[in-house]
Design a protein around this nucleic acid. Structure first.
Lengths: 316, 316
DNA sequence: CTAGGTGCAAATAATTTGCAGAGGC
DNA sequence: GCCTCTGCAAATTATTTGCACCTAG
């Protein structure tokens, strides 16, 4: 399922002219073997369990090295020192930080990212890094201080949520094309809609199989909190199209609605897929974007045939 | 325009049993006289210009005191030290931080706050403080390193943007009630709509006058960047209602649309008004919320009369 | 007169740096 | 053998504390 092993990948990150070192390898592997947000000191303690002779300075230097190599990301929770988290195969994300138990949880919100882009655009600002940290009280602490459920890695959570969004989108897409096919008078258009409906159906099967596999690997996954937040995805990106279809009668209009939906979902999946670092969630998004692009082209071609026009509609 | 002078207000913040001190007064007034985000060291330098005999420790202690008194807010831009910004009459906000020139700009986004609340709710998390920091390159630095335009205080920017939102809302509200009045058959209902239309008109006048006054005080204000971001406000909170009115014929339905609009805008203005610390923008929002509440009550009463029902509609 | 407030210097805490030695290529 | 990595200790930076003195109420 993965294109190359983590070790080989990390190896490839090493800056030109730098050397392998068993100490550094140890530090990197201990770091990658841990899940939460470590301080430099936490890491020193962990590493000293395996090798007494590694100095704090080396850990600091390695941390800097990992940061530059894109393996680690420095995060500041306002404690007066930094923490480090995985960056490799780990999407960028935002944090919920409990002031009581000091744990931090991660989430991702395409909606917030969207707003951030709009603000930055309005100010002519180029965003390199976005920090969103919500400080407060977690559910456990608020309700009396439970220890905490064992939590899955955010990579799995991301894969799970990416699959959920993809599945919801396929479902609404299938509904859209089924409806469109049934209300179409033109033979060519109906064939296209039926074809697309079948395509969505096939892909839906694959996605659901993958979702079940994921659950089989980690039975706890469904009980874990939501990680990726994206409003448009709750009922699938085509659900607005399904609504719109109800008040439309011409095949041309139906095609145009389909084009808009595919364009929107292609854009969403491509944009967010590209943003993340290598991970299953990323691959799900990009694969999906590709599929939507094919559908989009098919629809546009058909629209041109139907209208005799050169270009398919304006719009964003 | 202000209920009491800053000095008197700050005086009232002094904890019980604490003494006046000219040193502290000096530090506080130097701090309040500066704009932007100062480090403790910046402040020491500034203060030493006026009095050589003030020690770093005192500045640190006063900073802590100001933080507790609500005059200053500690912000962390991940530089390994803290900066302090005004908190007194200065809304909570988010930051854009330029890595090149090290300047930081402020903005506010009700949209992002909204998303934050949704994420927190989904996770059962109680948010005490939200940090949103966008690191990157500002417009000036990206385009070749201009020094920077003199910037207005965020208090003025907030007042300006609050007025803009209020004005847009009044305008769309007036349009809504004018249309509603003209399409109403029932005499009582028409009277209500006309009355509300006039009320919006009056308030609109007052707001526009205040906006002009603000511009007169600070002619640069319109050239300053947007500070408060809120999507729903671009064309006024009633514009959806104006649209909805077009496809509705009964007076009852028109009243209900009005109720929904007033309820939504009352909620918005109240919620955000309450969030901010004392400032003109806050007062504009709260005053506005109050007006909307009155309209809302009037509409609900009328709806009850018209339908003979006990309660006015369900919904959020 | 007495509880704070203040300056000075020393303490702390996190991180960085200088330098000499160790080790991979 | 060269060049980078490493350990150790000392340096640096930001902030806090201890303590003797000062001052407003």
């Amino acid at each position: 399922m993965q294109s190359q092993s983590p070790a080989a990948y990390i190896d490839s990150l090493r800056p030109a002219g730098s050397k392998r070192s068993s100490k550094r390898d140890l530090i990197v592997s201990v770091f990658l073997g841990q899940d939460g947000h470590l301080t430099a000191d936490d890491l020193v303690d962990l590493i000293r369990k395996q090798d007494q002779r590694i100095s704090r300075a080396t850990v600091y230097r390695t941390l800097t090295w990992m940061e530059q190599a894109g393996i680690a990301r420095k995060v500041d929770f306002g404690e007066g020192r930094f923490r480090f988290e995985h960056s490799y195969r780990h999407p960028r994300h935002f944090h919920l930080i409990c002031k009581a138990c000091n744990r931090s949880m991660e989430f991702l919100s395409s909606d917030i990212e969207q707003m951030i882009e709009e603000v930055a655009a309005a100010r002519g600002f180029t965003v390199k890094q976005a920090v969103v940290q919500l400080y407060g009280l977690c559910e456990d602490c608020a309700s009396g201080g439970r220890p905490a459920a064992p939590q899955a890695s955010s990579e799995s959570l991301f894969a799970r949520d990416a699959l959920r969004i993809a599945i919801a989108t396929e479902r609404s897409g299938r509904e859209f094309y089924t409806r469109a096919a049934s209300m179409t008078s033109n033979d060519r258009a109906r064939t296209i809609f039926e074809q697309l409906s079948t395509s969505e159906d096939d892909h839906l099967d694959r996605l659901e199989t993958r979702y079940q596999e994921l659950l089989a690997e980690m039975p706890d996954l469904e009980r874990q909190p939501q990680f990726l937040f994206f409003k448009g995805a709750a009922s699938g990106l085509f659900s607005a199209g399904v609504e719109a279809l109800k008040s439309v009668s011409s095949d041309k209009d139906a095609l145009m609605i389909g084009i808009k939906c595919e364009r929107g979902s292609h854009k969403f999946f491509k944009k967010y897929g590209e943003k993340f670092e290598d991970s299953e969630g990323k691959r799900i998004f990009l694969e999906f974007a590709e599929e939507e692009r094919e559908h989009l082209e098919l629809l546009i071609r058909e629209y041109r045939v139907l209208t005799g026009k050169d270009r398919a509609g304006a719009g964003s």
